[in-house]
Design a protein around this nucleic acid. Structure first.
Lengths: 338, 338
DNA sequence: CACACTGTTTACAACGTTGGAACCAACGTT
DNA sequence: AACGTTGGTTCCAACGTTGTAAACAGTGTG
């Protein structure tokens, strides 16, 4: 049985509340009392009971991060950054994997979590628009990634469409004419895919290139295997591409694998660019050109937004904020060659 | 203000305890009472307050997973699996990143966590041996990865030394004579590195090959960049290798990158094998031969062990168990070629 | 010397839940 | 008719903490 305030109080010969005051750094405690209490604390190895504290104060010091899957390097890196950012505020992060299942995401948004959390950082995959509106639950939420509808939650993201256009433009600039896209998705809730596709189309139009539907490959998920399969379909199709914009790096790595398997050179025969700037792309062969969102900034901002909503003089019902984070194009071997 | 048992009780016209009984599935509740209570619960959208529940019962339903870094695909995959395994027991997972810092790991072991958790799954990096002994804290802990000293904690791991020997043997079997190792580490607490090195040496001895110290490259960390740098040093050294056993896949991917950069072919000039079987290796060029630990099993066992310690009739002070998980060699292009 | 003030400490009541004992009714057994 | 048994329900007391209000001492002011 771990010691409580009571035990410390008994040992130091003071009241429970005085010990509580010392623990919480209350100012009006006589120096010698404080010392005596501190000594007792150290001697007993007292540690505050979080459950009781939370029950009393309503705060748990825990925020949840909900992502589709930790297995994807992008989300793993994101999670790592967020854990670090949260650490600076001495918050702990609870991880929820939705696996991209709509019902799981719905539960999350409805506040059907099993655990008491002070806030939620949520990167939705299956849900979009109105479905993200919150029910009774009013724990602060920060949305990551794309969102069209302006609901009652803060939101941090890069300009997806612009970034996709940048990537496509980069391919155009190297003189490619038949530029394919891998990563389109049919579902209306696949907002990310839609936006990146829109950027791709915009850039093509801008360069005076036709948008050939045969060059747009759909995928089920954003994994390497999907990229590999999609690339195979493109190569087998009529008039194969001389460049591909993949909607994320995993798709791109899969696509490159297929290209090399089939004896094509990258970027000689086909240039490839991805999206996310995961570490793999910096060491793959060839190294992968990509769009690098400012992940660190995204993590910081997300945590900051939560902090604001949770802060002392916070206006809990303040209008939701929309924060843009910068991105940059990183050109590597898969488009430039050696 | 969210509704509590009190509100539900009032609405259903029963006592608080009866509601509690319904919520907890207590058997002796009259069917119609149960129905009435359930109705009130649904109507009010009652959700139990975890803090209060934990305060009373001592259980939080949260387990912590402490890993060096989520950014490493191996740990990310592991984390994902553990989250899933925990889900089946309706536990939530709290993630702690130690960054491999010894003091952080010490805090963790000492139970200086800020949050109430029922158990801890810990994959230590900086700490080994006696340092992992627990202080006053008696929350159950399961250790992942290597451990030499038999302390008071359960432990799940593959046979590192045997696996390393398997990998090295695979290289020997293809007729390589100058087999290098990348991933050695000086620190006495780098148990994983020591064990894999031991396996490497054993396999060489078995094959009648000399152990050339010039072929053993040390690294700071197990990241791609370290692998790339180490490979460069090996190539610049006297008598470069014709095969490399890298102590994890990231090192291997970095090493391959350097080899290809320098115009060497893989596996033509140099065969490469890694360790972990991360997804990257299945799509890299060339695809990466590796040792595949049974990750899913590791995650399951770790969670099962915790569950046992937490279970009803558990013998909390039972002797720590040592569980071995199987591994297999996965030969791909980086050793076999096309 | 009464007074207000500052600084320091304490008593008490919550927070929402659950374990245990106690209670009540209905039933079957002597 | 008195008694135990069982199912169903309620009452009470915790769990460890903190906010509020109040008590207490000491100091300087009128």
């Amino acid at each position: 049985m771990p010691p409580g305030l009571k035990d410390v109080a008994a040992r130091a010969g003071v009241s429970i509340k005085t010990v509580s005051n010392v623990v919480n750094g209350y100012v009006h405690v006589a120096p010698d009392t404080r010392a005596r209490v501190q000594q007792a604390i150290d001697a007993l190895g007292y540690k505050p009971n979080v459950a009781a504290r939370q029950l009393r104060s309503g705060r748990s010091g825990v925020i949840a991060l909900a992502v589709p899957e930790l297995q994807s390097p992008y989300f793993a890196e994101l999670a790592g950054r967020i854990v670090h950012a949260a650490e600076r505020r001495s918050w702990t992060v609870l991880i929820d994997q939705t696996d991209g299942h709509a019902d799981r995401e719905r539960n999350l948004v409805a506040g059907l979590r099993r655990h008491a959390i002070d806030g939620l950082i949520f990167s939705p995959l299956a849900l979009a628009g109105e479905e993200l509106a919150r029910g009774g639950d009013e724990t602060p939420m920060v949305l990551l990634g794309e969102r069209v509808w302006h609901g009652p939650a803060d939101h941090v993201a890069i300009d997806n469409t612009a970034a996709a256009a940048d990537a496509t433009r980069h391919l155009c600039a190297s003189g490619r004419r038949r530029i394919a896209a891998i990563g389109a998705q049919d579902s209306p809730s696949a907002v990310t895919a839609h936006q990146r596709l829109a950027g791709y189309r915009a850039a093509l139009a801008e360069a005076g290139l036709p948008v050939d539907p045969a060059l747009v490959a759909e995928v089920e998920m954003f994994h390497r295997a999907d990229g590999a399969a999609a690339m195979a379909r493109l190569l087998d199709g009529p008039g194969p591409p001389d460049a591909v914009f993949c909607f994320n790096d995993l798709l791109a790595l899969g696509a490159i694998r297929t290209l090399l398997d089939r004896g094509r050179t990258v970027p000689g025969d086909v240039a490839v660019i991805g999206f996310d700037d995961i570490e793999d792309g910096r060491f793959s062969t060839p190294t992968l050109s990509t769009i690098a969102p400012d992940l660190g900034r995204i993590a910081e901002l997300a945590v900051d937004l939560l902090a604001e909503r949770l802060g002392e003089g916070a206006t809990p019902a303040a209008a939701p904020r929309e924060l843009r984070v910068s991105h940059r194009l990183v050109a590597r071997e898969s488009t430039l060659g050696r």
